[in-house]
C-alpha cells in the first residue's frame, strides 16, 4: 500500500483490517446463503432435503426438479409447470417496459427543454405517483379492467404496469436531461430544427446509459410485481411471481421443496441475469430512484 493512498483516507491497523475483512466476509455469506440454499436444493432428490441435508451439497445430482418446475408441476389446477406463466411474464414485461421508457424519455425531454409554467408541479404529481401504496388504486383498477374486459389478461397487466411505470421513467430521463446543455437545443432550434428532430438527433444519441438504467429498472420492477398480478390475473394469465406463489403454497400432496427451489430460481433468473450483466446500471437506477438530488 502506497503512502499516497493511505494519506487520502482513514488509516487502519493490521488487526483492524483483518477484522474488517472478517465482518465483510460474514455478511457476504449471509447474503449468499439463500441463493446457495436455492441452488443446491434444486438439484437434489426430495429425500435428501427432508432427511436433514438442506445445507449439504447433493449426494445425488438431478435436474428432475428443474424439469418438473418448468413443465409438469401442478400450478393451480393444471399440471402445466411454470412455463406458460414465464411466457405470460415475458409478454407482459416487454411492451410495458418499451412503452413506459419511450414515454418517459419524451416526458423528460419536454419537462427539461420545453419548460412551461407549472411544469415542476406536474412533475411532482408524477413523482408522487411512484410512491403511492398501490392498494389505493386496486379497487377502481379492478372495476375498470372488468369494464374493459381486460381482467385476467396480459393486456390488462401491460396497461397497469405502463401507467404506474411512467413516473419512474420520467424521473430518470428528466434528471438526466436536466444536465444536458440546453444551448445545443436552442442552437438547433435557431437552425430550424423542430421538436422531434431535436429529440431524435441531439438528445436521443446521448441517451444510451439512462435508457439502459430505465429499461433495467422497469424490467426488474414489473417482472417482480406480485400485487397487481395477484389482484388482476390470478388464473391462466398470471405472471411468474403469482404462479410461483401458487406452486409453493399449494396444499395438496407432498411438499416438493426441491421443485419449489427450482421454481424460485426460474422466477429469479431473468432479473438475476440482468443484474449480473448490467449490475452497474441497476444500482444507478436504484440510487436515482432514491437520491434525487
Amino acid at each position: 500500500m502506497s503512502i499516497a493512498s493511505q494519506d487520502a483516507g482513514i488509516r487502519t491497523g493490521r488487526v483492524a483490517r483483518t477484522f474488517i475483512y472478517l465482518v465483510l466476509l460474514l455478511f457476504a455469506l449471509f447474503y449468499l446463503l439463500p441463493l446457495y440454499v436455492m441452488l443446491v436444493n434444486s438439484v437434489k432428490p426430495l429425500s435428501e432435503i427432508t432427511g436433514g441435508g438442506m445445507m449439504s451439497l447433493p449426494q445425488v445430482w438431478t435436474l428432475e426438479p428443474w424439469a418438473k418446475a418448468w413443465s409438469t408441476a401442478q400450478i393451480g389446477v393444471e399440471p402445466t409447470g411454470l412455463r406458460p406463466y414465464f411466457w405470460n411474464s415475458i409478454s407482459m414485461v416487454v411492451p410495458a417496459v418499451a412503452i413506459s421508457t419511450i414515454l418517459g424519455a419524451l416526458n423528460g425531454y419536454v419537462l427539461t427543454k420545453w419548460r412551461f409554467r407549472g411544469d415542476t408541479i406536474l412533475f411532482g404529481l408524477m413523482l408522487f405517483a411512484c410512491f403511492i401504496p398501490f392498494q389505493i388504486v386496486l379497487i377502481p383498477m379492478a372495476a375498470v379492467l372488468g369494464t374493459l374486459g381486460l381482467s385476467g389478461t396480459t393486456a390488462g397487466l401491460v396497461l397497469v404496469h405502463l401507467v404506474y411505470g411512467i413516473g419512474f421513467s420520467t424521473l430518470y430521463f428528466r434528471n438526466y436531461y436536466a444536465v444536458f446543455p440546453t444551448e445545443l437545443v436552442r442552437a438547433a432550434q435557431i437552425d430550424g430544427a423542430g421538436f422531434f428532430r431535436i429529440f431524435w438527433r441531439i438528445l436521443l444519441p446521448s441517451s444510451g446509459p439512462i435508457s439502459v438504467v430505465c429499461v433495467i429498472w422497469q424490467f426488474t420492477n414489473i417482472w417482480n410485481d406480485f400485487l397487481f398480478g395477484a389482484s388482476f390475473a390470478s388464473g391462466d394469465g398470471a405472471p411468474m411471481t403469482v404462479a410461483l406463489n401458487n406452486l409453493v403454497q399449494s396444499s395438496t400432496g407432498v411438499k416438493e421443496y426441491n421443485v419449489h427451489f427450482a421454481g424460485a430460481i426460474l422466477a429469479a433468473l431473468p432479473t438475476l441475469l440482468v443484474y449480473i450483466v448490467a449490475g452497474r446500471y441497476f444500482v444507478r437506477g436504484l440510487m436515482a430512484g432514491s437520491v434525487k438530488g
Binding site: 465483510l24 455478511f27 457476504a28 447474503y31 449468499l32 446463503l33 439463500p34 441463493l35 440454499v37 436455492m38 436444493n41 438442506m54 426488474t220 417482472w223 417482480n224 406480485f226 411471481t241 410461483l244 406463489n245 409453493v248 421443496y257 419449489h260 427451489f261 421454481g263 424460485a264 430460481i265 422466477a267 429469479a268 432479473t271 438475476l272 440482468v274 443484474y275 449490475g279 441497476f282 444500482v283 436504484l286
Partner: peptide, 24 residues
C-alpha cells in the same frame, strides 16, 4: 467483488426471497 454480493437481493422478487426464507 463484494459490493454486488451485498446488493443482488434487491434484484429479486419478494416472492423468491420469501420462498427461500420460508423453507430455510
Amino acid at each position: 467483488f463484494i459490493r454486488p454480493i451485498f446488493l443482488y437481493p434487491m434484484a429479486l422478487s419478494f416472492i423468491v426471497t420469501g420462498t427461500a426464507w420460508k423453507w430455510m
